[in-house]
Design a protein around this nucleic acid. Structure first.
Lengths: 207, 207
DNA sequence: ACATGTGAACTGCTTCACAGCG
DNA sequence: CGCTGTGAAGCAGTTCACATGT
């Protein structure tokens, strides 16, 4: 398949959210222009984004809401359950483990790990924190698809190396570190410090 | 000033992190190439990024670590304290309030708000959760610089409108919503659901 | 008539390559 | 000589504009 830009995937994800909203409101068709307005983009952008994957619309009419939503779920790989493990049960890891919003879209948290004996064994809304020493064993047994990394900066690369060696192919990284991974592994990094500094820059340099 | 790309600012932020690491290790000079390797980019990119703001290096030698770190702090606006309020003290908001990592770089959490009477008054590591009804009054009195939005999706736009009307110029948004704000307000959105879907897409469509 | 789908034009970020200077 | 600083070239993502289909 032709390479799809990251920005395109993010917009597809946004379109799906809007379509689900329209779906619950009982609307059956939508135009690229309406979709664009909700997503803060342009109708041409919407049509171009969708065109990478086929022709889903009817000329002169627009798109069928349920059909397009279905196609987007397919494209984004949301037609199945993804097993997610959380590594690091500190403040952020624990908050994510307790956050039940992911379940909705098919992301199931199957385990939470920590290296601190004080934390191992704690209950997080029904999930017992496991010993990080068992990561490899558990990954070989349970085959989780995605690892959420919420460990301290200094541990991030070492833990990532272990996850990759054990077969993990997708990592959502909350540590403020630039992770090195082989090309077959996908990493998305959420760096709150960086975002705050981006705001600091904007506040400082606005004219 | 010439417009600076978002990607450039994010890299500057990363360079600063590496420089601080070098600083603590006592190194005094660094080349664009070393900086590039740590940041997963190229030396030309590093030099181009810096060139927007001046000429900080010595030809044939590289950059002075403390000097460049200082210049980057200046550029990013980190030479001062930024007052940050957190709106929404649910799982994510509370975790952020307790996360002391922000303090390090000059971001001080001055208040936390929630609309739920069950939550108002709770103590989060020394910060009492305030009633969201007092947002406007407090903003006029305390002049916070940045608002972190950690409220449910349905409330996100309405709360943003209140913040903007009260004078907030920078928002870090954790709600899965596309916020509408006037041009003088900067918004950065962290959308974990979208990141997970990006990983789902990558896992589904890798060849 | 109306909205899609798509080459072509455009914009802007990244990479190249080399002149300039310590 | 080595590494920076920077125009020029290259490339990728966005926008334009219109032919196409209903």
């Amino acid at each position: 398949m032709k390479h799809i830009a990251d920005s395109t995937v993010r917009r597809l994800s946004a379109y799906l959210r809007f379509l689900e909203d329209f779906e619950t409101r009982g609307l059956t068709t939508i135009s690229s222009d309406e979709l664009a307005k909700r997503g803060g983009t342009t109708s041409a952008q919407v049509r171009k984004d969708l065109s990478f994957f086929g022709s889903f619309g009817k000329r002169g009419l627009g798109y069928s809401v349920p059909e397009l939503a279905g196609r987007l779920r397919e494209i984004l790989g949301l037609g199945r359950e993804w097993k997610v493990i959380i590594v690091g049960a500190g403040k952020i890891g624990a908050a994510l483990a307790r956050h039940h919003g992911f379940q909705q879209r098919g992301f199931t948290i199957t385990a939470v790990y920590d290296a601190d004996p004080q934390i191992v064994g704690l209950d997080l809304d029904g999930l017992a924190v496991r010993d990080a020493g068992h990561l490899e064993r558990d990954i070989h047994r349970d085959h989780p698809d995605i690892a959420v990394l919420a460990v301290p900066e200094q541990a991030a690369q070492a833990v990532t190396d272990r996850l990759v060696r054990a077969g993990i192919k997708a990592v959502l990284n909350f540590a403020p570190a630039q992770l090195q991974v082989p090309p077959e592994v996908t990493v998305k990094t959420v760096n709150m410090a960086m975002e705050l500094e981006g705001l600091s820059f904007a506040l400082t340099n606005r004219e």
